[in-house]
């Protein structure tokens, strides 16, 4: 098993994933950062999804993304951002809107949250801008 190959395959597909619109240069850079962070989890056996969500974070606002997860799996959600965003955070909610307990990682422009759902179904991942000004971000996730 060579996890770095998995990361490499994810990075080389940066331009091929299905998106509703073309990612901006800033979003591509943010995705590269997110994939680098996710690569650390690949070393621990996590598979990185090729799908991603890129967008713009604004002060005092958040982006909320709906995902469908399986009980039994473990997940890490990784977000990369670019200047002028200085710090972002990830929060996970269950289908009732209740926040779930996660392991969190934060390194200024990158952040991650990990958890293992006990129930299969829909979850929501919120990305908040904690410090800085409006800027681009990208979310990827990994599972095992």
């Amino acid at each position: 098993m060579k996890p770095w190959l998995s990361l490499f395959a994810s990075i080389v597909t940066l331009t091929t994933s299905v998106v509703l619109r073309a990612d901006t240069d800033a979003e591509v850079r943010a995705r590269k950062d997110a994939l680098e962070l996710a690569g650390a989890f690949a070393n621990d056996g996590f598979n990185i999804r090729d799908g991603h969500w890129c967008g713009v974070l604004r002060p005092h606002d958040h982006t909320l993304i709906a995902l469908n997860l399986y009980a039994g799996n473990q997940y890490w959600f990784s977000v990369g951002t670019v200047e002028p965003i200085k710090k972002a955070a990830i929060t996970v909610f269950d289908e009732t809107g209740k926040q779930v307990t996660t392991e969190t990682y934060s390194n200024e422009e990158k952040a991650a949250a990990g958890f293992a759902p006990e129930s299969s179904g829909q979850y929501f991942v919120a990305i908040d801008l904690l410090e800085g000004e409006e800027g681009s971000f990208c979310l990827v996730y990994s599972y095992k």
Binding site: S17, W53, L69, F124
Partner: peptide
């Protein structure tokens, strides 16, 4: 929750 983003590329496992 109703307004959350849902896309084929990330919302579908």
């Amino acid at each position: 929750m109703t307004k959350a983003v849902g896309t084929d590329s990330i919302s579908v496992p």
